[in-house]
Amino acid sequence: MKKSLLLLGTFFTLFFTACEGPTGPPGFDGRDGENGFDGREAQVFEVDDVDFSYISEDNLYESILVFEDFTSFEVLPNDAVLVYQYDRTVEFQDGSQDDVWNLIPQAFFTNEGTIQYTPGHTTKDVEILISGNYDLSNLETQFTQGQLFRFVIVPGQAATAKIDKSSISAVMSSMGLTEADVLKASFK
């Protein structure tokens, strides 16, 4: 039995050693692709002084921002456009500060009822609406004038990734973006 196991072990050693041959010639180098997902990186831009116009027949406020007015980044149909509304700057005990950004849709509760900011986008523009469950014709200007928004355009492949989209910091970090990458513009 020991001889047959030794013979079998020797056979397998010779067989597997014999299957290895000399290394072949190296293949050709492929072309380098662009950085990012499908050759595209994410884009982030900030627009200040966004004003909304009241549309009485629909009882809502609307603001439409055309991408080419703020960025040359091409938005494709499968891209995600995340819209964040600036809330305030907070100061920490150590004296440092940080901005608070809220992903919209975002609801606010007023004395009259509830209003909600909601975004929608095409490949050309993004529309932000303010709708509510009461007559919005006299909505306070703190909700309709001089708003500050950040837009993160996430390429389609990356948009399906498991990212905490409620945190603009997490989204920017996962896309390799920093504050220095934020393009800043004014709506007016």
Rank of each mutant, 00 (worst) to 15 (best):
115 I>G: 00
185 A>S: 07
133 N>D: 14
76 L>A: 04
142 Q>E: 15
98 D>A: 13
115 I>P: 00
86 Y>K: 13
130 I>M: 00
96 S>C: 03
160 T>A: 13
117 Y>P: 01
116 Q>E: 13
36 G>W: 10
94 D>C: 07
159 A>Q: 11
2 K>D: 14
104 I>M: 01
105 P>C: 00
87 D>P: 00
35 N>P: 02
181 D>F: 12
167 S>C: 06
56 S>H: 10
75 V>N: 03
6 L>I: 15
26 P>M: 04
46 E>W: 08
40 R>S: 05
33 G>A: 14
86 Y>V: 06
112 E>M: 04
107 A>W: 00
46 E>D: 03
182 V>D: 11
116 Q>F: 01
170 A>S: 12
177 L>D: 06
117 Y>C: 03
45 F>W: 03
73 F>R: 08
4 S>F: 14
39 G>S: 13
10 T>K: 05
46 E>Y: 02
156 G>D: 07
172 M>N: 05
67 F>A: 10
13 T>V: 12
16 F>V: 02
123 T>I: 14
172 M>Y: 02
150 R>N: 15
125 D>W: 07
39 G>C: 10
85 Q>I: 09
99 D>E: 12
60 L>C: 10
19 C>Y: 02
31 R>H: 04
184 K>G: 03
21 G>N: 08
145 Q>R: 15
111 N>D: 14
111 N>I: 02
27 G>Y: 06
9 G>C: 15
179 E>I: 09
14 L>K: 02
163 I>Y: 08
26 P>V: 03
166 S>M: 11
145 Q>C: 04
75 V>R: 11
9 G>S: 14
